[in-house]
């Protein structure tokens, strides 16, 4: 892949203690995302309360991220939603239902059980008619999300809203599906610079460097894992921390190298 230049108009972060880019800039502290109350839910503006109550924590988180980058993007914007698990809470509810004699799954739960439930609900909330994709690459979901976004921008010559999100699952799936903290991160990306552009991202495909990704993360306790944390070095670089090239893994051998130029 030739080096692709993407232009970043806005970045955002949603977690229990950091709600939006300004709060992130104020803290720049990964520890802030670690502790949270179990009933924490991302706050939404684009859906009525009645609709919000029907949605999983995962969907609420993803839509909250999309809302925060939406206003910098034009109507003709493609969206990429990337999550390593997706609708984990809904999966747990369905598995519980299948364990009952009636095996009665709620229809609304079923239609919101698909991995693209968050992106689908976002298209409804925002009236999106453009291409929207929902992808997963397990622990490499962040890299895959950026790869897909960069290809979409180049192939359609259109802006892309990139939403990266994962939230913890309830017990008992929480033991096998290890996502310990909720975290959503969003990027408003464009093919050309605009008056709102804050950085140019030069993206190329490269071999995995040594040390491996995550090595540049601040110290995170073992019980605070979330695959979306892989994007933190990029966030910190965007926030002004001196950084060398950012690396986002696509697999154990290769990944994306990102050079950040503040504008």
């Amino acid at each position: 892949m030739k080096q692709n230049s993407l232009f970043l108009d806005r970045a955002t972060i949603v977690s229990p203690h950091v709600n939006g880019w300004d709060e992130f800039l104020a803290s720049l502290n990964c520890q802030d995302v670690i502790s949270f109350e179990e009933d924490w839910r991302a706050q939404l503006e684009s859906l009525p309360m009645r609709s919000r109550r029907r949605l999983s924590p995962q969907i609420l988180l993803a839509i909250s991220v999309a809302e925060k980058i939406h206003e910098t993007l034009p109507k003709e914007t493609a969206w990429v939603f990337a999550s390593s698990v997706g609708e984990g809470e809904t999966l747990n509810v369905i598995l519980d239902a299948l364990g009952t004699p009636e095996k009665a799954i709620q229809p609304l739960r079923f239609q919101n059980s698909v991995h693209n439930a968050a992106s689908g609900q976002w298209t409804i909330a925002a009236g999106v008619k453009c291409p929207v994709t929902s992808i997963n690459a397990h622990n490499y979901t962040v890299g895959a999300g950026f790869l897909k976004a960069s290809m979409q921008i180049k192939s359609e010559n259109c802006p892309v809203g990139l939403v990266l999100y994962d939230a913890p699952l309830p017990y008992p799936l929480s033991a096998s599906h290890k996502i310990n903290i909720p975290l959503g991160v969003g990027f408003a990306l464009k093919p050309e610079p605009s008056a709102n552009t804050i950085a140019e991202l030069k993206i190329s495909y490269c071999k995995t460097p040594n040390p491996m990704p995550f090595a540049s993360l601040p110290q995170i306790p073992e019980n605070s894992y979330n695959p979306i944390l892989a994007v933190f070095p990029l966030l910190k670089c965007l926030a002004g921390s001196p950084q060398e090239d950012i690396f986002l893994g696509l697999n154990k051998d290769y990944g994306l190298c990102i050079k950040v130029k503040q504008l």
């Binding site: 997706g86 929902s134 992808i135 997963n136 690459a137």
Partner: peptide, 10 residues
Amino acid sequence: TGPGYTISTA
């Protein structure tokens, strides 16, 4: 060993 990911849009 090239790029690999999964699309899940129902």
